[in-house]
């Protein structure tokens, strides 16, 4: 077994639902969906979000889409229009969930590559080389 972030085996989208948000987490392939079913539990997701989610986390399954839908209750600091937060509508909660690490079998080739300019997302700050500070 090894640990990888969910972004290596799934993609996701989030948005607001009243005073909470939802994250739809979609596996890239069938094997990934089996892993999500077994390991991406509501409890684990609730712990991952820490103080961002004040309420409970519910999980629904949509096998036709290889998707799990997580409802994050009381996760916006008030409803979308009442919240003071920068992310008042939970638009970035999907990316937060994709950072959650999960155990996968060693022989499972992750469908989404690690970040590299040619195959995956561009490496951070390509155009702005950073000087080492002392």
């Amino acid at each position: 077994m090894r640990r990888v972030p969910l972004s290596r085996i799934a993609h996701a989208r989030s948005g607001d639902k009243g005073t909470g948000s939802n994250v739809g987490l979609i596996a890239a392939d069938d094997r990934g969906y089996e892993i999500l079913l077994a390991r991406a539990t509501a409890e684990k997701v609730k712990a991952h979000f820490g103080g961002i989610v004040r309420g409970v986390v519910e999980r629904y399954e949509a096998p036709n889409l290889r998707a799990l839908n997580f409802i994050l209750h009381d996760s916006l600091g008030g409803g979308g229009s009442a919240s003071l937060r920068t992310d008042a509508q939970g638009k970035t909660h999907a990316l937060a969930l994709l950072m959650m690490e999960i155990e996968i079998p060693d022989d499972y080739q992750t469908p989404y590559p690690e970040g590299s300019p040619s195959k995956g997302p561009p490496a951070e700050g390509l155009s702005a080389p950073r000087r080492k500070s002392r």
């Binding site: 993609h11 996701a12 989208r13 989030s14 948005g15 607001d16 639902k17 939802n22 739809g24 979609i26 629904y60 399954e61 949509a62 889409l65 290889r66 998707a67 839908n69 409802i71």
Partner: peptide, 13 residues
Amino acid sequence: IAEQLVYEMGNPR
């Protein structure tokens, strides 16, 4: 399309 299907989704059934 799958991403938009799950957008603002509650109980998918």
